[in-house]
Amino acid sequence: MKLSDIRREYSLNGLKRSELVANPIEQFNLWLEQAIQAGLADPTAMTVATVDEHGQPFQRIVLLKNVDDSGFVFYTNLGSRKAQHLQHNNKISLHFPWHTLERQVHVTGTVEKLSAMENMKYFTSRPKESQLAAWASKQSNRISARSILEGKYMELKAKFAEGEIPVPTFWGGYRIKVESIEFWQGGEHRLHDRFIYVKSENSEEDWDISRLAP
């Protein structure tokens, strides 16, 4: 079969303007809860897009760790490629692909680093194995073999066998301050429903909602 012949109809649900709530974070949380209840694998997985100093876009999958009216939160190695990109250009894009529900959510905004207290609170809540992995991996750096990474992990496991594991200085979180959120619902005959929320020019608390052509 040719790749150009692979297609399917989207017919689960439509999306009407009257079904949307005024606040996009509330709308996102509603859809996220439905994705969780539907048993989707990794419902908090999102594509994070950044741009390097040459204008080259990069994407990768990370997990959403918190979302509220102040923004979307994820954590990473602060020396990673995406962190280096964000240091030069703090604009970012998130994408949630909930294929089973025939839904997508696209977020644009800018990032700010979380405080040391916020980083510590989340880091200490992680399983010990994840804490060790944060220490062991110099994310995005070249390594000659997996055995080097595994050896470093075992070395750290022995070192921190007793007591708490401190938060690495090179690890932390980012909060995405939202500028727009688009909700996409698949529709029959490729007549998808798309609505975008953009911050109102008249109020920091209000959002303008527009329907977009598919």
Rank of each mutant, 00 (worst) to 15 (best):
K177Y: 08
P166Q: 10
S147P: 02
G173R: 01
A158Q: 13
S137N: 03
E150Y: 12
S180F: 01
V167L: 15
F183K: 01
P168G: 00
N141C: 10
N141P: 00
I148L: 15
K128L: 10
P127S: 05
G187Q: 03
P168E: 00
F183G: 02
E182H: 10
G163V: 13
Y153H: 08
A133E: 15
E162I: 15
L156K: 03
E129L: 11
A161H: 14
Q185M: 05
W171S: 03
E179H: 11
R126H: 07
G186H: 08
I181L: 11
L149C: 00
E164H: 10
K152D: 09
S130Y: 02
E162H: 13
R146Q: 14
K152H: 11
R126W: 08
M154G: 01
I143C: 06
G187Y: 06
P168V: 04
G151H: 11
Q139M: 01
S125D: 10
R175D: 02
S140W: 04
Q131M: 13
F183V: 02
T124V: 07
I181S: 00
Q139F: 06
T124D: 09
M154A: 15
A158E: 15
G187H: 03
F183P: 01
G172D: 02
G163D: 12
F183Y: 05
I165P: 03
R146S: 12
Q131E: 05
I176Y: 05
G151V: 12
W135S: 00
E164K: 14
S140G: 01
E179V: 06
M154C: 09
L156Y: 07
Y153W: 08
E155A: 11
G173S: 07
G172T: 06
K152T: 12
G163M: 13
V178E: 01
E164I: 12
A133L: 14
A134Y: 01
R175L: 09
A161T: 13
Y153F: 15
H189I: 02
H189F: 15
K138R: 14
T169R: 12
M154L: 14
F170M: 07
K177E: 10
S130G: 01
H189W: 11
Y153I: 04
S130T: 10
F160G: 05
K152L: 11
A145G: 10
F183L: 04
T169W: 11
Y174S: 04
G187R: 03
I165W: 04
W135I: 02
E162S: 14
I181C: 05
F160M: 08
